[in-house]
Design a binder for these strands. Structure first.
Lengths: 181, 181
DNA sequence: TATTTAGGTCAGTCATATTGACATATTCTG
DNA sequence: CAGAATATGTCAATATGACTGACCTAAATA
């Protein structure tokens, strides 16, 4: 019932053989594995979020706010690459329900700096722990150096123009670690 | 304008240090890199699909039908893990616009076996080539063995109960390659 | 014959995203 | 200081992709 029985019928020549020497064979395995892996990767948090009447969008917002305390709304939009109208509803719900607070910028009073509350941090950590469990299990199944290999592969998959941002964000181990006592 | 300037404020102790010895630090880097990498990975096809008034759902359906000619509707639902109502509209549009055809099953005439048309295969290959370009570029930036490392990491990230299916689907290089002349 | 299976469809709902227009407060600049 | 630019919020309309639940037909099967 779970297993499939798909038999390829009507075999034809691959496109690269019909149009001689134009294209290499697509990397079907990685294309499909990325789909399956990402789906399961976000599936764990989804289950928790559903019970709270939240969705993936709430997760992303809470995650980056928790990781970057005091970030501006504009920064969040630039990371998520969505419009402020899309962010609006989701952010409002997180604020109304006490997961995130806004504070007026000290220098620029137009800014609404975003912070996760204790409640928000707790949820963010709960979701991050779920995803970490999956990653840790995956890395443990494989040899040493896998974390670094995966990291480099994922970075290389990012658009060149987005890499600096991604590296800056992910290079910091944890803003909540004792940097300033 | 593109770059962010986020300074972490209010550093606190990490959760693993407050609740002594409970949790390891979350793997922030891979969690976030998976988000960025997957977003850019699906972004290339999205741009093409938008011009055709299609979305990601159409891509997934067309992709798996093209890769598995003659598959049953039930197989597709099991791969995509969506309901038949969700599949319905998307599949109907692909059929109406001549990207996919259905043929009655030879043995079981209840079945509607799915095949990509020439037009469908052309679009599927165009999208796969975009994603392959990104993957090939990424792998070329890194050392040898990266393809295999990435493959194993992604497989290990998949739910155990979904792995067999994923491995079976992705193990086959290309159903259109000359297996039976 | 009765039940199960494969597939389709109607109706309603929800979450996430979009564009476009506009409003408010604040900062910056000539 | 006046006017422009910036940061943010909001209203309205729309599209996409997913869901549940109910119901239907045709064909296979027990």
């Amino acid at each position: 019932m779970t297993d499939l029985n798909i038999s390829p019928i009507h075999p034809r020549q691959a496109a690269s053989e019909r149009e001689p020497g134009v294209r290499p064979e697509p990397t079907w395995d990685l294309i499909e594995l990325l789909f399956f892996a990402y789906r399961d990767f976000v599936g764990d948090p989804d289950d928790v979020l559903t019970k709270l009447n939240f969705g993936r969008a709430h997760h992303r917002v809470l995650h980056f706010v928790n990781r970057n305390p005091g970030m501006k709304v504009a920064d969040l939009l630039d990371i998520l690459k969505i419009t402020k109208q899309s962010l609006g509803r989701v952010l409002k719900q997180l604020i109304d329900q006490g997961y995130i607070v806004q504070k007026e910028g000290a220098n620029d009073r137009r800014q609404r700096l975003l912070y996760a509350t204790g409640k928000g941090e707790a949820l963010a950590m709960r979701l991050a722990n779920l995803q970490t469990e999956r990653i840790t299990r995956a890395l443990a199944e494989l040899g040493p150096g896998t974390h670094e290999n995966a990291r480099q592969f994922l970075i290389a998959m990012i658009n060149v123009e987005n890499r600096n941002q991604a590296m800056k964000l992910t290079a910091r181990p944890d803003p909540k670690r004792k940097t300033t006592p």
